[in-house]
Simulated scan of single mutants.
Amino acid sequence: MSETLIHEAARRFTATFGDLPAGTVFVPGRVNLIGEHVDYNDGLVLPMTVREGTAVSWARADHAHISIRAADLGESDHFASSEPPRPHDTSWRSYVRGMVAELGLPADAGVDMLVHGNLPRGSGLSSSASFCVALGRALNDALGLGLDAISLAKAAQRTEHEWAGVACGIMDQVAVAAGNAGRALLLDCRDLAMQQFALPPDWAVAIVDSGVTRGLVDGEYNSRREQCEKAARKLGLASLRDADRGSLDNANLSALEYKRALHVVDEITRVRRASEAIAASDLEAMTCVLREGHVSLRDLFEVSVPLVDRLVEAVDDILKERGAARMTGAGFGGSIVVVLERAALPELQQALDRPVRPVF
């Protein structure tokens, strides 16, 4: 799928700019197996890349501007790299200008770019992280900046914070910048230590879109982060990464703060359990982790919605002990992730009333 996207991006670049691109980069989206809303709490997460993503074709230009075409939107932008971005504007142009600002490009940098992607926005698959890191890779290659994957991921995160107004953690950006196909990435969001786990060959991972498009800048996402930070301060901790159930029980937390903090503490434990289940090829243990994780997101962190809950229940009813589903991403809609026996995938695809897209 990425080869098709790359080819099409290059073709559209030529049609737009009248010449062949000097290069094309591809950055996938990601699905998070477990570890939701813990990256901004310095926790552990377990994402993996998906097949869909963002391709950016590029070429150096003799003008001192960034000229970019968003092929899927039929829109363009043209600006000097020294031109200030537009803070907290959630349009695609703000992400472009934010990445240019965060990478600190030379004032006379001239690059033509065309963006073509197939990650649906609002599906919980990190379309914005894929977009930003792909832009970063294209500019890195075009201008010889010499930046590594983590540097690009951090620039993409700063763009989300400063120019889109989303106080996200680092998981999405590192996952799409450093993840490998078919492997789960155990990421420590405190020090960015990483370990890759090959998934058992008799397992499958699939994504099902709920059809509910979610947004992150309506205040709900940022408010969850604020609630976690307030709980950590009451506990006298730098972050909830250092909390445990005992410390929560002995702290003067409000009922809401307690629920949020309990989800974080238990979710970090679930990430460790999931990593062990993958290493041991223990699907039964993985199934338990996923089901517990969804209940926690629904009842303690309160980021699921009824349609997503019903979809998770439908998948679990079909699979029984052969796998499980949970919401993935920040919540309030988007997609669910399913980990299941590979042999059960055709039955799930037949029984469910919507597309089931295999990731692995």
Rank of each mutant, 00 (worst) to 15 (best):
residue 2 S to L: 07
residue 3 E to Q: 09
residue 3 E to R: 07
residue 5 L to N: 09
residue 10 A to V: 09
residue 14 T to V: 05
residue 19 D to A: 15
residue 20 L to I: 08
residue 24 T to C: 15
residue 25 V to Y: 04
residue 29 G to W: 14
residue 32 N to T: 08
residue 41 N to E: 09
residue 43 G to H: 06
residue 48 M to I: 11
residue 48 M to N: 03
residue 49 T to L: 08
residue 50 V to P: 00
residue 50 V to L: 08
residue 52 E to C: 08
residue 52 E to P: 01
residue 53 G to Y: 05
residue 58 W to C: 10
residue 58 W to L: 11
residue 60 R to D: 11
residue 60 R to F: 02
residue 61 A to W: 12
residue 63 H to A: 13
residue 65 H to Y: 06
residue 73 L to R: 05
residue 75 E to G: 01
residue 75 E to P: 03
residue 75 E to I: 09
residue 76 S to Q: 15
residue 78 H to G: 00
residue 80 A to G: 10
residue 81 S to L: 09
residue 89 D to V: 11
residue 91 S to N: 05
residue 91 S to K: 00
residue 92 W to I: 13
residue 104 G to E: 14
residue 107 A to H: 02
residue 108 D to V: 08
residue 109 A to K: 02
residue 112 D to V: 00
residue 119 L to V: 15
residue 121 R to T: 11
residue 125 L to F: 06
residue 127 S to C: 12
residue 128 S to W: 12
residue 128 S to F: 12
residue 129 A to L: 09
residue 131 F to M: 13
residue 134 A to K: 03
residue 135 L to F: 04
residue 138 A to C: 09
residue 142 A to D: 09
residue 147 L to H: 03
residue 149 A to Q: 10
residue 149 A to W: 06
residue 149 A to M: 06
residue 151 S to E: 15
residue 154 K to H: 09
residue 155 A to N: 06
residue 157 Q to S: 04
residue 159 T to W: 04
residue 161 H to A: 05
residue 164 A to R: 08
residue 166 V to I: 15
residue 167 A to Y: 07
residue 173 Q to F: 02
residue 177 A to S: 14
residue 179 G to E: 08
residue 180 N to I: 06
residue 180 N to Q: 14
residue 182 G to T: 06
residue 185 L to D: 07
residue 186 L to F: 06
residue 187 L to Y: 01
residue 189 C to T: 12
residue 190 R to L: 15
residue 194 M to L: 13
residue 195 Q to W: 00
residue 196 Q to P: 02
residue 197 F to T: 03
residue 198 A to H: 06
residue 201 P to Q: 05
residue 209 D to G: 01
residue 212 V to Y: 03
residue 215 G to R: 13
residue 215 G to W: 03
residue 217 V to T: 15
residue 219 G to S: 11
residue 220 E to I: 12
residue 220 E to F: 13
residue 222 N to G: 11
residue 225 R to G: 06
residue 227 Q to W: 10
residue 229 E to K: 03
residue 229 E to C: 03
residue 233 R to N: 06
residue 234 K to R: 10
residue 238 A to V: 11
residue 239 S to I: 01
residue 245 R to N: 08
residue 246 G to A: 14
residue 247 S to I: 13
residue 248 L to C: 11
residue 250 N to L: 15
residue 250 N to F: 08
residue 250 N to T: 11
residue 251 A to E: 07
residue 254 S to W: 12
residue 256 L to M: 11
residue 258 Y to C: 07
residue 262 L to F: 10
residue 267 E to D: 04
residue 273 R to E: 13
residue 275 S to L: 04
residue 276 E to K: 04
residue 277 A to E: 05
residue 282 D to W: 05
residue 287 T to Q: 10
residue 288 C to W: 12
residue 289 V to D: 03
residue 289 V to N: 02
residue 291 R to E: 15
residue 293 G to L: 08
residue 294 H to S: 12
residue 295 V to S: 09
residue 296 S to G: 04
residue 297 L to I: 09
residue 298 R to W: 04
residue 301 F to R: 02
residue 303 V to Q: 07
residue 305 V to E: 14
residue 311 L to W: 10
residue 312 V to S: 07
residue 312 V to L: 14
residue 316 D to Q: 01
residue 322 R to K: 07
residue 324 A to L: 06
residue 328 T to D: 11
residue 328 T to Y: 01
residue 334 G to F: 02
residue 338 V to K: 07
residue 339 V to M: 14
residue 340 L to K: 02
residue 346 P to S: 03
residue 350 Q to L: 12
residue 350 Q to W: 00
